[in-house]
Computed example of a mutant assay.
Amino acid sequence: MKIALIAHDKKKDLMIEFTKKHRDYFEKHELYATGTTGQLIIDHTQLNVHRFKSGPLGGDQQIGALISEELMDLVLFFRDPLTAQPHEPDVSALIRLCDVYNVPLATNIGTANYLIEYLNAR
């Protein structure tokens, strides 16, 4: 599977802990991430991650392009719903693309855990 990992600033620590917890699962798949999130995942897990630009600099759009080309299987996007994001239109577009192309999307840790545990059991 091709899996995108994205996290807003206040959710990056949560993404790191999540990828550490599920490292065995993630190492079997192709991982993609926005810039800073990807580097943090690499630094803390040594997983191989293809990094795009940071979200506000177009990373969300780069992942969206893969979704529109039907080249992404799963998106895990830990959003911070309580902080205004300067690139909110890009975030909305990414979520919309997941819906258009039927790509499973988790925007919080509860859904992400459920999806990974379900997929890992298959």
Rank of each mutant, 00 (worst) to 15 (best):
H8A: 02
D9G: 09
D9I: 13
K10W: 13
K11W: 06
K11L: 00
K12C: 06
D13Y: 10
D13Q: 09
L14M: 12
I16L: 05
I16F: 01
F18N: 05
T19A: 09
T19W: 00
K20A: 08
K21W: 11
K21G: 04
K21S: 12
H22D: 10
R23T: 08
D24N: 11
D24W: 11
D24A: 13
D24L: 10
Y25E: 04
E27V: 10
E27S: 09
K28C: 09
H29P: 10
E30N: 15
E30D: 15
Y32R: 08
Y32E: 04
Y32V: 05
T34Q: 07
G35L: 01
G35K: 00
T36L: 03
G38W: 02
G38Y: 05
L40I: 02
I41F: 04
I41C: 07
I41H: 03
I42H: 02
I42M: 03
I42V: 11
D43N: 07
D43W: 03
H44I: 06
T45L: 01
T45E: 04
T45P: 08
T45A: 02
Q46D: 07
L47G: 08
L47N: 08
N48W: 05
N48R: 14
N48A: 14
V49F: 02
H50I: 15
H50W: 14
R51S: 03
F52M: 08
K53L: 15
S54H: 12
G55P: 03
G55T: 05
P56K: 03
L57A: 11
G58L: 07
G59N: 09
G59R: 06
Q61V: 15
Q61K: 12
Q61I: 14
